[in-house]
Simulated scan of single mutants.
Amino acid sequence: MTEHTYKFDVKMTCSGCSGAVTRVLEKARPDGVSDFTVDLATQEVVVKATLPYDDILARIKKTGKEVRSGVTVE
């Protein structure tokens, strides 16, 4: 499967917010997430995964955080 890189602008206001996103992405590792970064300061989440964009988006939205935008980088 082809790995993709996705970048999301996620509204995170505290370390609890970024922690929630980190936890949901960590749980997705067995499903196809190979690497990710969650940056509270820039409110940016970058994910490398074989999963489709919509799957990653849905997992981040499950945290209750607002995803303001998202793009496929490659």
Rank of each mutant, 00 (worst) to 15 (best):
G16K: 02
G32M: 09
G70N: 03
T50Q: 13
A20W: 02
A20F: 01
D54Q: 14
R29M: 11
T5K: 15
L51C: 10
L25T: 10
C17A: 09
S15H: 08
V71G: 02
T13K: 13
R29Y: 02
G16M: 06
K11L: 09
V38C: 08
C14L: 05
A49M: 02
A20I: 06
P52Q: 04
E26N: 14
V67E: 03
V10A: 01
T22K: 14
V38K: 00
G16F: 05
I56F: 08
R23Q: 10
G32K: 03
F8N: 02
R68G: 15
S34K: 11
R23D: 11
V67G: 03
T37D: 09
K48M: 06
V47M: 02
S15D: 15
D9N: 12
G16E: 13
L57D: 13
K61W: 03
M12R: 01
F8P: 05
V47H: 00
R29E: 13
L51W: 06
F8D: 00
K48G: 00
K11H: 11
L40R: 08
T5L: 08
T5F: 06
E44T: 13
L57Q: 09
V67Y: 00
V38G: 06
V73D: 09
G32T: 10
K65A: 10
V46S: 08
K7A: 14
E3D: 12
S15A: 13
